[in-house]
Nucleic acid binder design. Structure first.
Lengths: 339, 339
DNA sequence: CTGAAAGCGCTTACAG
DNA sequence: CTGAAAGCGCTTACAG
């Protein structure tokens, strides 16, 4: 009896009829609003149950107020950044109250604009824009009828609110871990130089070294974000004859490649050389040999914070500017010898 | 002038007023319905533009008919299966007409039920349930007021429609590729034995071998779905002293581990031993040394088909049972020597 | 070709 | 404590 028999769902009027009350009373009873006789409430509730009544959220949303939906637009569903962020968003919103429209703009600006319009037409309570890189992106503009929060990528309009990760701090903390565990001759292999993630992670490393009165071994080696470049760069580094006792890689993929080359050349990690990544891409970091010490960028937390900022904005407490979230070091076996 | 000045969005009434027509006429003009004077239409359209009018999809949805939304419930956002499927769904639905609610049940049945109810309350046109394994799962039941399609996992109720991948065929085709390229002594390393993916992929391999009058080298080696087991299993295999000229791995992760061990033992791939994976997890398969030949499970296509079946059901052309999609071999360098 | 009216399913003052 | 009425923003017969 708890299930609708078939194709369609009953409405409040039917519930009210079965309970022998008016629609208004049924509504109040079901929503625990104002004073309703206890017996009446019970009668309405059981009528609702018997009919398998599920309130129509469209009608509710039409009245104004919240619709209990938010839109997440991503440029990069394929990438591995969007997903943890999305999970964080769901965490914060509480899945049983707010549902998330996930839309992939696929890097197409026109499509992005259409998606925004589609979301507005469905009267979402807000939009979270998840970029694929930690770079600045064009603002969606100020005229939008719903609050927008930029996550990962940052808006170029300081009047917008962006939440992103702190790549400088990530590089800094990584280097700190290496230096604190006794390394002094650190080499650095990175990804594509134009990416702000590459630049800022390097910057963090250099900052720490300078704070400790140390110097980078050689120059930062920029290439692309692949295992292949990690392998090649490590080989170049070894062939340069420079001495080093640690390599900080700007990503876990790079670190995997580096580990391969070191292994092949018979260099022991971490005893002879410590290797560290950034990203904490678990499937890569955990399964490498040795398991990779890395920096977790806290993307799920980023998603949670972005969602909370959206709720703040909806509640009228809106802020602006860029909020950077701290990352944290995850120590595995590639930097510190096991006892 | 094209943007709303601020917080809210104007409605049809405002557009009609500005254009000097009635709401009904404005509606018809905007929706290209029935006969509307060309001049009137133009006037309404430009009024809409000037006001930054975006139709309220909630009001539209209230009228009955489609709401232009579907729900995708996944058990496994973290895993790498849900994402390509989701992209396929978006492909098929055409993002500018239909928006997708993405919900992660996080493996919790109660949460899944609540999500279904939330989706029904928003009057989605249909629900796609994406499981995390290619195993049978409990049906959501028959009483639902919207069509449901099961993707990847299959419903235990034959009255439901499920779309999944053909693991037997995947194993068969993988083995076929190996045998056709001259291998005759094939060993097999797999994941968790209870998973139907492990069982069925093995079955496909055995079917092909039997068709060709060949026998498996040793027994299938089941373990877990990790690089670590791939490395260990390869070592066990080598230490067994059995002769083999190919290893079919039931996943790309396993294959990565196998490649590591072979490399370490100085065995050349593919010259001495061919290694093949299944999944075509590109970031792993493409960056291994040598690049990994594997089987693409066509998950994005699976998403497209699931979405189309949902549309069929909405249109009254519903089907039932399990539909298996074929996979296809992706040849890279780990099975065939480069010229 | 255009518009007044009714209605989709709900909620919210407002009377009683 | 309960109900009749109005209204959210649209669309769709139905008159004109």
């Amino acid at each position: 009896m708890k299930e609708t028999t078939s194709g369609s769902v009953s409405n409040l009027a039917a519930v009210a009829r079965l309970a022998g009350v008016s629609a208004s009373t049924a509504s109040k009873a079901l929503n625990a609003r104002s004073d309703v006789n206890e017996a009446t409430r019970t009668r309405v509730e059981s009528a609702a149950r018997d009919l398998g009544y599920v309130p129509n959220a469209l009608a509710r949303g039409l009245m104004g107020g919240s619709t209990g939906t938010v839109g997440v637009i991503t440029t990069d569903l394929e990438g591995r950044f969007a997903l943890p962020i999305l999970m964080g968003v769901e965490d914060a919103l509480g899945i049983d109250r707010v549902l998330t429209f996930l839309c992939d703009a696929r890097g197409d600006d026109a499509r992005e604009r259409r998606l925004v319009e589609e979301l507005v037409s469905r009267r979402v309570d807000g939009i979270i824009l998840v970029g694929k890189q930690t770079d600045v992106r064009p603002s969606l503009g100020r005229g939008l009828p719903v609050p927008v929060v930029y996550a990962y990528s940052m808006s170029d309009d300081p009047a917008d609110l962006s939440v992103s990760v702190d790549n400088v701090q990530a590089g800094y903390m990584a280097a700190q871990h290496l230096v604190d565990s006794g390394r002094t001759k650190i080499a650095h292999i990175s990804g594509e130089a134009p990416h702000s993630a590459a630049q800022r992670r390097s910057q963090g490393l250099l900052n720490l070294l300078s704070d400790r009165g140390l110097e980078l071994t050689g120059q930062p080696m920029f290439g692309d974000w692949t295992e292949g470049w990690g392998r090649a760069a490590a080989a170049l580094l070894l062939d340069s004859g420079r001495e080093f006792d640690a390599i900080l890689c700007a990503s876990d993929q790079l670190a995997r490649g580096v580990l391969d080359t070191l292994h092949e050349r018979g260099i022991t990690v971490p005893t002879q050389v410590a290797v560290m990544g950034i990203d904490n891409w678990v499937v890569l970091a955990q399964n490498s040999r040795p398991a990779l010490t890395t920096v977790d960028m806290q993307l799920q937390k980023l998603g949670r914070v972005a969602a909370r900022r959206l709720q703040d904005a909806t509640a009228g407490r809106s802020s602006a500017g860029i909020e950077y979230l701290p990352s944290s070091v995850v120590i595995r076996d590639s930097t510190i010898p096991r006892l």
